[in-house]
């Protein structure tokens, strides 16, 4: 890390403790100066730990599966369609929905940092931000899918979307067979986070049978 930890390595405490202390120190200084309010920090954390997560995206996908008019609106202009369900804002200002089909599988990456559609998926998992995923998703997507235990037919085209600007991508996975007439709530249980990034597929009915 720049500047501050090189001379501490021979001490007893771990790197993590160093970081913890440093974060605490900066928070205290910024709070004492009146730049941040710890209650606002708590709310930010609570929002992304408890309220905003992949369940939001699952509701969007389930609605698209169940409601053809909604699906059409979502694929035409996803931001307002997603806004209909109350999901909008930071890191989801301009969303595009990508529909997977037996002919084309879509997969999303941000090779340059960690761009991810927060309002519908929450904060990205560690692997999404990691060098292995960011380096290989664009050059060897089938290899990456294999890391997730996913094998697609050879004749399924793969389309990788590198989120290099402020457009955020949400994959609509293929609806599993045997789900005709299911409610949106029940359909949403089939929609995994990874299926909306394109590194996974939706669950099958047997996967959620109790």
């Amino acid at each position: 890390m720049s500047g501050h930890d090189g001379h501490h390595h021979d001490h007893d405490h771990s790197e993590l403790t160093e970081t913890e202390l440093r974060v605490r120190a900066l928070e205290t200084v910024l709070t004492e100066k009146g730049y941040v309010d710890p209650a606002a920090l708590d709310l930010l954390i609570e929002t992304y730990e408890k309220k905003v997560g992949p369940r939001n995206g699952a509701r969007v996908v389930a609605k698209a599966w169940a409601d053809p008019a909604y699906r059409a609106r979502l694929l035409k202009d996803a931001t307002p369609a997603i806004g209909e369900l109350g999901y909008a804002g930071r890191q989801g200002e301009h969303i595009v929905a990508l529909e997977n089909t037996p002919k084309q599988h879509n997969m999303v990456v941000c090779t340059l940092c960690s761009c991810y559609p927060w309002p519908v998926l929450g904060l990205p998992p560690v692997w999404y931000k990691s060098a292995p995923y960011r380096s290989r998703a664009v050059a060897d997507p089938r290899g990456v899918l294999a890391d997730f235990g996913v094998t697609l037919p050879k004749d399924t085209d793969i389309r990788v979307w590198d989120s290099t600007a402020e457009i955020r991508y949400l994959v609509v996975p293929v609806r599993p067979a045997g789900t005709d007439g299911w409610s949106e709530d029940k359909l949403a249980d089939l929609v995994t986070r990874d299926s909306m990034i394109g590194t996974g597929l939706a669950k099958q009915p047997k996967d959620i049978a109790k």
Partner: peptide, 11 residues
């Protein structure tokens, strides 16, 4: 490279 793969960026 895999001929079934296409990659896009926003530029």
């Amino acid at each position: 490279a895999d001929p079934s793969v296409k990659v896009s960026v926003d530029a």
